[in-house]
Amino acid sequence: MTSQAPHQPWLQRWHVKPIGWTILLVVLLVASSRMTGVDVGMFLSNLDQFTALLTRLSQPAWDYLPVIMRPLYETIQMAILGTTIGAALALPFALLAAGNLVHNRWLRSGIRFWLDLVRTLPDLLLAAIFVAIFGIGSTAGVVTLAIFSFGMVSKLFYEVIETIDMGPLEALESVGAGKLTVIWYAVLPQILNQFVSYFLYTLEINVRASTVLGYLGAGGIGVFLQRSLNEFNYSQTAVIILATLVVVMVIDGISNHLRRVLL
Protein backbone atom coordinates (compact mmCIF):
# COMPACT_ATOMS: atom_id res chain seq x y z
CA MET A 1 0.00 0.00 0.00
CA THR A 2 1.32 3.45 -0.81
CA SER A 3 1.12 6.04 1.88
CA GLN A 4 -0.57 9.09 0.51
CA ALA A 5 -0.47 12.53 2.07
CA PRO A 6 -3.90 14.08 2.42
CA HIS A 7 -4.71 16.74 -0.17
CA GLN A 8 -3.79 20.20 1.01
CA PRO A 9 -6.81 22.52 0.86
CA TRP A 10 -6.33 25.52 -1.46
CA LEU A 11 -6.99 27.93 1.39
CA GLN A 12 -3.84 26.68 3.02
CA ARG A 13 -1.89 26.24 -0.18
CA TRP A 14 -2.14 29.86 -1.27
CA HIS A 15 -1.88 31.30 2.26
CA VAL A 16 -5.21 32.98 1.83
CA LYS A 17 -5.73 33.72 5.52
CA PRO A 18 -2.39 35.35 6.38
CA ILE A 19 -2.45 37.46 3.21
CA GLY A 20 -6.03 38.50 3.89
CA TRP A 21 -5.20 39.54 7.45
CA THR A 22 -2.18 41.55 6.31
CA ILE A 23 -4.22 43.47 3.74
CA LEU A 24 -6.94 44.15 6.28
CA LEU A 25 -4.39 45.43 8.81
CA VAL A 26 -2.78 47.82 6.33
CA VAL A 27 -6.17 49.15 5.28
CA LEU A 28 -7.17 49.70 8.90
CA LEU A 29 -3.90 51.45 9.65
CA VAL A 30 -4.19 53.87 6.75
CA ALA A 31 -7.86 54.52 7.44
CA SER A 32 -7.32 55.22 11.11
CA SER A 33 -4.39 57.55 10.49
CA ARG A 34 -6.56 59.44 7.98
CA MET A 35 -9.37 59.77 10.46
CA THR A 36 -7.26 60.86 13.40
CA GLY A 37 -5.16 63.20 11.29
CA VAL A 38 -1.81 61.58 11.96
CA ASP A 39 0.56 62.88 9.29
CA VAL A 40 3.17 60.28 8.49
CA GLY A 41 4.88 62.76 6.15
CA MET A 42 5.37 65.24 8.95
CA PHE A 43 6.82 62.52 11.13
CA LEU A 44 9.41 61.74 8.48
CA SER A 45 10.29 65.39 7.67
CA ASN A 46 10.87 66.14 11.36
CA LEU A 47 13.37 63.35 11.80
CA ASP A 48 16.29 65.81 11.66
CA GLN A 49 14.94 67.56 14.76
CA PHE A 50 14.99 64.20 16.42
CA THR A 51 18.68 63.71 15.64
CA ALA A 52 19.42 67.20 16.96
CA LEU A 53 17.70 66.26 20.22
CA LEU A 54 19.66 63.04 20.36
CA THR A 55 23.01 64.87 20.05
CA ARG A 56 22.08 67.13 22.95
CA LEU A 57 20.92 64.18 24.98
CA SER A 58 24.22 62.43 24.35
CA GLN A 59 26.04 64.85 26.67
CA PRO A 60 24.68 63.88 30.09
CA ALA A 61 25.51 66.23 32.97
CA TRP A 62 26.75 63.63 35.40
CA ASP A 63 27.08 66.10 38.27
CA TYR A 64 23.27 66.16 38.27
CA LEU A 65 23.18 62.52 39.35
CA PRO A 66 23.36 63.09 43.16
CA VAL A 67 20.40 65.47 42.92
CA ILE A 68 18.10 62.84 41.45
CA MET A 69 19.04 59.99 43.79
CA ARG A 70 16.39 60.97 46.31
CA PRO A 71 13.48 61.29 43.86
CA LEU A 72 14.57 58.07 42.20
CA TYR A 73 14.46 56.36 45.56
CA GLU A 74 11.07 57.92 46.18
CA THR A 75 9.82 56.52 42.86
CA ILE A 76 10.80 52.99 43.88
CA GLN A 77 9.15 53.45 47.28
CA MET A 78 5.98 54.66 45.62
CA ALA A 79 5.92 51.63 43.38
CA ILE A 80 6.51 49.17 46.22
CA LEU A 81 3.97 50.81 48.52
CA GLY A 82 1.33 51.16 45.81
CA THR A 83 1.76 47.58 44.61
CA THR A 84 1.65 46.19 48.14
CA ILE A 85 -1.50 48.07 49.11
CA GLY A 86 -3.20 47.19 45.82
CA ALA A 87 -2.29 43.50 46.00
CA ALA A 88 -3.31 43.19 49.64
CA LEU A 89 -6.72 44.68 48.88
CA ALA A 90 -7.03 42.53 45.76
CA LEU A 91 -6.72 39.22 47.62
CA PRO A 92 -10.11 39.18 49.39
CA PHE A 93 -11.85 40.39 46.23
CA ALA A 94 -10.11 37.75 44.13
CA LEU A 95 -11.35 35.08 46.57
CA LEU A 96 -14.90 36.39 46.26
CA ALA A 97 -14.67 36.53 42.45
CA ALA A 98 -13.43 32.94 42.05
CA GLY A 99 -16.14 30.65 40.68
CA ASN A 100 -14.86 27.56 42.48
CA LEU A 101 -15.04 29.22 45.92
CA VAL A 102 -18.15 31.39 45.65
CA HIS A 103 -21.16 29.55 44.29
CA ASN A 104 -23.49 32.51 44.62
CA ARG A 105 -23.65 33.72 41.01
CA TRP A 106 -24.98 37.18 41.89
CA LEU A 107 -22.29 37.97 44.41
CA ARG A 108 -19.57 36.74 42.06
CA SER A 109 -20.84 38.66 39.02
CA GLY A 110 -21.29 41.79 41.14
CA ILE A 111 -17.71 41.64 42.35
CA ARG A 112 -16.39 40.93 38.86
CA PHE A 113 -18.33 43.80 37.36
CA TRP A 114 -16.88 46.10 39.95
CA LEU A 115 -13.35 44.83 39.31
CA ASP A 116 -13.82 45.30 35.56
CA LEU A 117 -14.93 48.85 36.25
CA VAL A 118 -11.82 49.59 38.31
CA ARG A 119 -9.64 48.15 35.55
CA THR A 120 -11.07 50.46 32.90
CA LEU A 121 -9.89 53.60 34.74
CA PRO A 122 -6.75 54.86 32.96
CA ASP A 123 -3.88 55.37 35.40
CA LEU A 124 -3.06 58.81 34.01
CA LEU A 125 -6.62 59.94 34.68
CA LEU A 126 -6.39 58.57 38.23
CA ALA A 127 -3.11 60.39 38.77
CA ALA A 128 -4.58 63.67 37.55
CA ILE A 129 -7.55 63.29 39.89
CA PHE A 130 -5.47 62.39 42.93
CA VAL A 131 -2.97 65.17 42.30
CA ALA A 132 -5.98 67.48 42.37
CA ILE A 133 -7.17 65.92 45.63
CA PHE A 134 -3.93 65.37 47.55
CA GLY A 135 -1.83 68.04 45.88
CA ILE A 136 1.51 67.53 44.16
CA GLY A 137 3.49 64.80 45.88
CA SER A 138 3.94 61.09 46.25
CA THR A 139 0.64 60.43 48.08
CA ALA A 140 -1.23 60.91 44.82
CA GLY A 141 1.22 58.56 43.11
CA VAL A 142 0.86 55.83 45.72
CA VAL A 143 -2.94 55.95 45.64
CA THR A 144 -2.95 55.84 41.84
CA LEU A 145 -0.58 52.89 41.74
CA ALA A 146 -2.55 51.10 44.45
CA ILE A 147 -5.79 51.35 42.48
CA PHE A 148 -4.08 50.40 39.23
CA SER A 149 -2.44 47.36 40.88
CA PHE A 150 -5.68 46.40 42.55
CA GLY A 151 -7.48 46.22 39.22
CA MET A 152 -4.77 44.26 37.49
CA VAL A 153 -3.78 41.90 40.29
CA SER A 154 -7.33 40.99 41.35
CA LYS A 155 -8.07 39.59 37.89
CA LEU A 156 -4.78 37.68 37.70
CA PHE A 157 -5.37 36.36 41.21
CA TYR A 158 -8.88 35.04 40.70
CA GLU A 159 -7.86 33.34 37.50
CA VAL A 160 -5.13 31.53 39.42
CA ILE A 161 -7.55 30.59 42.19
CA GLU A 162 -9.87 29.01 39.65
CA THR A 163 -7.16 26.56 38.59
CA ILE A 164 -6.42 25.09 42.03
CA ASP A 165 -6.98 21.48 43.04
CA MET A 166 -10.27 21.29 44.95
CA GLY A 167 -9.35 18.03 46.74
CA PRO A 168 -7.61 19.63 49.73
CA LEU A 169 -10.59 21.96 50.21
CA GLU A 170 -12.91 18.97 50.37
CA ALA A 171 -10.61 17.34 52.91
CA LEU A 172 -10.47 20.41 55.13
CA GLU A 173 -14.26 20.79 54.96
CA SER A 174 -14.70 17.15 55.92
CA VAL A 175 -12.48 17.75 58.95
CA GLY A 176 -14.96 20.36 60.18
CA ALA A 177 -12.95 23.48 59.34
CA GLY A 178 -14.69 26.81 58.86
CA LYS A 179 -14.50 28.83 55.62
CA LEU A 180 -11.55 30.99 56.63
CA THR A 181 -9.58 28.03 57.88
CA VAL A 182 -10.23 26.15 54.63
CA ILE A 183 -8.94 29.12 52.63
CA TRP A 184 -5.92 29.49 54.86
CA TYR A 185 -4.92 25.83 54.86
CA ALA A 186 -6.08 24.54 51.50
CA VAL A 187 -6.24 27.54 49.13
CA LEU A 188 -3.38 29.88 50.05
CA PRO A 189 -0.55 27.31 49.94
CA GLN A 190 -1.64 26.38 46.43
CA ILE A 191 -1.58 29.93 45.10
CA LEU A 192 1.11 31.65 47.14
CA ASN A 193 3.93 31.23 44.62
CA GLN A 194 1.90 32.53 41.74
CA PHE A 195 0.69 35.42 43.87
CA VAL A 196 4.23 36.48 44.64
CA SER A 197 5.13 36.09 40.99
CA TYR A 198 2.25 38.33 39.87
CA PHE A 199 3.07 40.79 42.63
CA LEU A 200 6.62 41.15 41.30
CA TYR A 201 5.37 41.44 37.74
CA THR A 202 3.03 44.26 38.77
CA LEU A 203 5.86 45.90 40.67
CA GLU A 204 7.95 45.96 37.48
CA ILE A 205 5.14 47.65 35.61
CA ASN A 206 4.58 50.11 38.44
CA VAL A 207 8.21 51.19 38.63
CA ARG A 208 7.97 52.12 34.96
CA ALA A 209 4.53 53.69 35.34
CA SER A 210 5.51 55.76 38.36
CA THR A 211 8.16 57.62 36.36
CA VAL A 212 5.44 58.79 34.01
CA LEU A 213 2.97 59.52 36.81
CA GLY A 214 5.51 61.84 38.37
CA TYR A 215 5.21 63.88 35.23
CA LEU A 216 1.68 64.78 36.28
CA GLY A 217 2.95 65.89 39.68
CA ALA A 218 2.45 62.60 41.48
CA GLY A 219 5.91 62.66 43.04
CA GLY A 220 9.13 60.85 42.31
CA ILE A 221 11.58 61.18 39.45
CA GLY A 222 8.91 62.21 36.96
CA VAL A 223 8.70 65.65 38.56
CA PHE A 224 12.36 66.21 37.77
CA LEU A 225 11.96 64.82 34.30
CA GLN A 226 9.25 67.32 33.58
CA ARG A 227 11.27 70.22 35.01
CA SER A 228 14.36 69.47 32.95
CA LEU A 229 12.32 69.09 29.79
CA ASN A 230 10.53 72.40 30.41
CA GLU A 231 13.86 74.13 30.89
CA PHE A 232 15.22 72.49 27.73
CA ASN A 233 18.02 71.19 29.95
CA TYR A 234 18.51 68.05 27.92
CA SER A 235 21.84 67.13 29.47
CA GLN A 236 19.94 66.73 32.76
CA THR A 237 17.14 64.89 30.99
CA ALA A 238 19.71 62.44 29.69
CA VAL A 239 20.96 61.68 33.21
CA ILE A 240 17.40 61.13 34.43
CA ILE A 241 16.55 58.81 31.57
CA LEU A 242 19.73 56.78 31.96
CA ALA A 243 19.40 56.47 35.73
CA THR A 244 15.76 55.45 35.43
CA LEU A 245 16.67 52.87 32.82
CA VAL A 246 19.26 51.36 35.12
CA VAL A 247 16.84 51.21 38.04
CA VAL A 248 14.09 49.64 35.93
CA MET A 249 16.51 47.08 34.54
CA VAL A 250 17.84 46.16 37.97
CA ILE A 251 14.33 45.72 39.38
CA ASP A 252 13.24 43.72 36.34
CA GLY A 253 16.30 41.53 36.76
CA ILE A 254 15.70 40.88 40.44
CA SER A 255 12.02 40.19 39.98
CA ASN A 256 12.62 37.94 36.97
CA HIS A 257 15.13 35.96 38.95
CA LEU A 258 12.81 35.63 41.95
CA ARG A 259 9.95 34.51 39.72
CA ARG A 260 12.08 31.86 38.09
CA VAL A 261 13.10 30.56 41.48
CA LEU A 262 9.47 30.51 42.66
CA LEU A 263 7.80 28.75 39.74
Binding site: P168, E170, Y185, Q190
Partner: peptide, 10 residues
Protein backbone atom coordinates in the same frame (compact mmCIF):
# COMPACT_ATOMS: atom_id res chain seq x y z
CA UNK B 1 -10.15 10.02 49.63
CA UNK B 2 -9.01 8.21 46.53
CA UNK B 3 -6.71 11.14 45.64
CA UNK B 4 -5.45 11.59 49.22
CA UNK B 5 -6.30 15.31 49.05
CA UNK B 6 -3.24 16.52 50.90
CA UNK B 7 -2.04 20.08 50.45
CA UNK B 8 0.94 19.28 48.25
CA UNK B 9 3.01 22.34 49.01
CA UNK B 10 2.65 22.05 52.77
Amino acid sequence: FQNFNLVNRS
